[in-house]
Write a protein that binds this DNA or RNA. Structure first.
Length: 286
DNA sequence: CACCATGTTCCTTG
DNA sequence: CCAAGGAACATGGT
């Protein structure tokens, strides 16, 4: 469930659930997701440690663990890929089909499940160093965005997915931010006018902030229902109120009327991924 | 059977 | 060396 807002909401919920809990046992059911860490090394490193904190960087979860005694605290890095979920459940409950790693915390198990196994839970920290600024932090300025866009001939939508430019925007919020800014996703990044860069900068932050606010206010079921609910980021959890479905304005709305001008929303493929936009509200030459 | 899916990385091509 | 495009990863839904 993977873009910045979803990870942020997950972290906020999870931090309260795991903080100060101790890992009694580690079970790696899919070694691929912990690579390049080996199962044995992960088990040795984690067993007996306590969760000291949990934060987010881009789409990554950063767990801070402290060993018993005088050992130094260290980091465990999580990434949800396309279909990853992390949550606690009673230790007596059977594990889900695609449980990739489970940590026994006593009466509860911390579950990392991932239907497609594209995610990660590993001691390898490298991924973080290549990330651009946090879009909601002060370091991410309109100036930074302008400079980064100037250097690229790629369509602006494709460029927004570059995690080195700014960390945490994915395929959904790239479309949403451009819609909100009224900029065509096909416009070459370097062709944006200063006013457009400024609007895009504001739109990125607004879209992410609102998504976080939305996720923070509805009841979350991180495991999802048996129907394969996609929770708050996309689709709707069973029994969740309808307003939630209305949150995304263009993503996955191909041929539906634009919420602003009623023109049919268009779907195009860019860099092998779907982009949604309103041809009326988001004009601009390539 | 065909095509689609919230992400990242690696390989090839220019 | 760099930028851009595409395939691969693995599973399931429509």
């Amino acid at each position: 469930m993977p873009e910045l807002p979803e990870v942020e909401v997950l972290v906020r919920h999870l931090v309260a659930a795991v903080k100060h809990k101790t890992i009694c046992a580690v079970a790696v059911r899919r070694p691929k997701v912990i690579a390049p860490t080996s199962p044995r090394r992960l088990e040795r490193a984690l067993t007996g440690t306590t969760f000291e904190g949990l934060s987010r960087r881009g789409k990554y979860l950063v767990f801070k663990l402290r060993p018993r005694g005088k050992g130094e605290a260290f980091l465990l890095i999580g990434h949800l890929g396309m279909t990853g979920r992390m949550y606690l459940q009673p230790a007596s409950q059977p594990l889900p089909k695609h449980a990739a790693v489970t940590l026994n915390l006593g009466r509860q198990n911390f579950i990392y499940e991932d239907q497609r196994y594209f995610g990660r839970l590993t001691l390898a920290v490298d991924g973080l160093s290549r990330l651009g600024p946090e879009p909601l932090a002060k370091e991410f300025t309109a100036k930074h965005l302008a400079a980064a866009l100037q250097r690229s001939t790629q369509p602006v939508k494709v460029k927004l997915l570059d995690q080195e430019l700014v960390a945490g925007i994915g395929n959904i919020y790239a479309s949403e931010a451009l819609f909100r800014a009224g900029i065509s996703p096909r416009l070459a990044a370097r062709r944006l006018q200063p006013g457009q860069v400024r609007r895009l900068w504001r739109a990125i932050r607004a879209v992410l902030r609102e998504a976080i606010a939305c996720g923070s206010t509805i009841p979350l079921n991180f495991r999802g229902g048996k129907t394969g609910d996609r929770l708050f980021y996309y689709g709707r959890a069973t029994g969740a109120p309808d307003y939630y479905v209305e949150r995304l304005r263009v993503y996955d709305r191909a041929s539906q009327p634009c919420v602003v001008c009623a023109a049919p929303i268009r779907r195009v493929i860019q860099a092998a991924r779907s982009t949604f936009y309103c041809p009326q509200c988001q004009q601009g030459r390539k």
